[in-house]
Design a protein around this nucleic acid. Structure first.
Lengths: 240, 240
DNA sequence: GGCGCTCCTTGATCTGCATCAATGCAGAAG
DNA sequence: CTTCTGCATTGATGCAGATCAAGGAGCGCC
């Protein structure tokens, strides 16, 4: 689980910290100087998670804040009777656990292999106090998340199953594009059940909708993803 | 619309700024000194809105940030075909327009009579840069909003109509309580249509659900609100 | 009073998605 | 190779909530 055992499994880097982590943080905290970055890096702790491994659990004490370096994390809430709502998929660059007070407000586990920077709660608190740059950046990230959440409320409250799936595919495409992986083929590492729980649908409805879109030649279903064949039509459906 | 014309319509206060505004800001920014508060107050601009008056419109240039002093504001997104999703109701102490970049991400209008502190975008930006205290407070507010939005995703994606209404009533009760107005009678200044658009239901379903809860002696419908008769049962339904 | 207006409630019917139930299919284990 | 196991797909049926339609009920206005 530790940095040196996993993604950065290289003794020569033990003292200088984790390179991947530093690079990622540089892009996240563009306004930080090299010294600040190093300081920040020293406070962080690089951890890895295998697919399906738990990152943290809803209502458990919030010990750490995470910044995702690689892979995809599923964030979800559960009701006592087992109903699940996935509130988001975290990709490289995203922060996890910002909104917590004492306990995590949701659970998180790895969709595929994940590596992340973990900050202890105290390290996080002192960092935020000492670095207005970083606080600004975190605030921007939080407000961006809020905007996405509001978009998702519109989707869950008022959109049809087909619209939900189309919006989801376009959003995933754009998120991969922002990570420098633009492609008409959208990777979908998560399961159909995950997509259903994210979109407020059942797995059957998601499957039928995929099949229908494929029949319409709007998409082409490929292993671990979907190729978008008619983005114009999709954009119209998703409009506003 | 200006402070002096409305809630603070009192010449003796012209020079010293708006008292209601200052008091409210003091509670919001508990860590600010009196001097800082005065400075902040000088940058703000007290405005009032009548019921149904527009505060700002989705996609229009984001000129201001608002802090609500009094009354309730409806925040909503529209689809081109007219479907509406209310993403929240803002009450005294809440900030509006934090998540914007260049344009507002949603529309806002007054449910009843509203007074608010408006900060121009530039005043807001300089304030945030100069006052780490305030930025911390705004960030906390944003993450709290994010938590609420995630709760709402769970509600919209996975809960039944009756559960949605019950969660809504309990949430409204708690919000009034935090404003120092605790009561078993929950004021509901917004229309049934607003509640429906907030909960992702139709007005008919909301009306029927209210009627059913009243028949069950869970609530009592009173003018402009609801009295909660069986909060124990409601808490069980809303659990987690 | 009567009229218009807006909001709310109630009933009848419809439908999109959930639920229930097989079946398919690919990778892992034997 | 066969069997198992965990998804994904597909079909048949059911139902919660949407839609359609018809009254109230409160309220300002003439």
């Amino acid at each position: 689980m530790d940095c040196q055992q996993a993604a950065c499994g290289n003794d020569s880097r033990r003292e200088s910290g984790c390179l991947a982590c530093k690079v990622r943080l540089a892009s996240v905290c563009a306004s930080l100087s090299v010294e600040e970055l190093a300081e920040l890096n020293a406070l962080s702790h690089h951890t890895s998670f295998d697919a399906k491994e738990t990152v943290f659990v809803q209502d458990h004490p919030a010990h750490s804040v995470y910044n995702i370096i690689e892979g995809m994390v599923r964030l979800y809430k559960l009701l006592p009777d087992g109903r699940r709502q996935i509130i988001g998929f975290a990709l490289p660059g995203d922060f996890l656990g910002l909104a917590m007070r004492d306990a995590f407000g949701f659970s998180a586990d790895a969709v595929d292999s994940v590596s992340a920077c973990a900050f202890s709660r105290s390290a996080y608190a002192s960092l935020v106090n000492a670095k207005p740059h970083l606080l600004r950046r975190l605030h921007e990230f939080a407000t961006h998340e809020l905007t996405l959440a509001q978009e998702q409320m519109m989707l869950l409250g008022r959109r049809s199953a087909e619209e939900r799936v189309i919006c989801f595919l376009l959003t995933m495409r754009d998120r991969w594009a922002k990570l420098g992986k633009p492609s008409v083929t959208v990777p979908l590492p998560m399961s159909r059940q995950d997509i259903a729980d994210f979109l407020g649908l059942t797995i059957e409805t998601v499957s039928r909708t995929f099949t229908k879109l494929a029949k319409d030649k709007t998409i082409l279903i490929v292993p671990d993803g979907v190729r978008l064949l008619n983005t114009d039509h999709m954009e119209v459906v998703a409009a506003a």
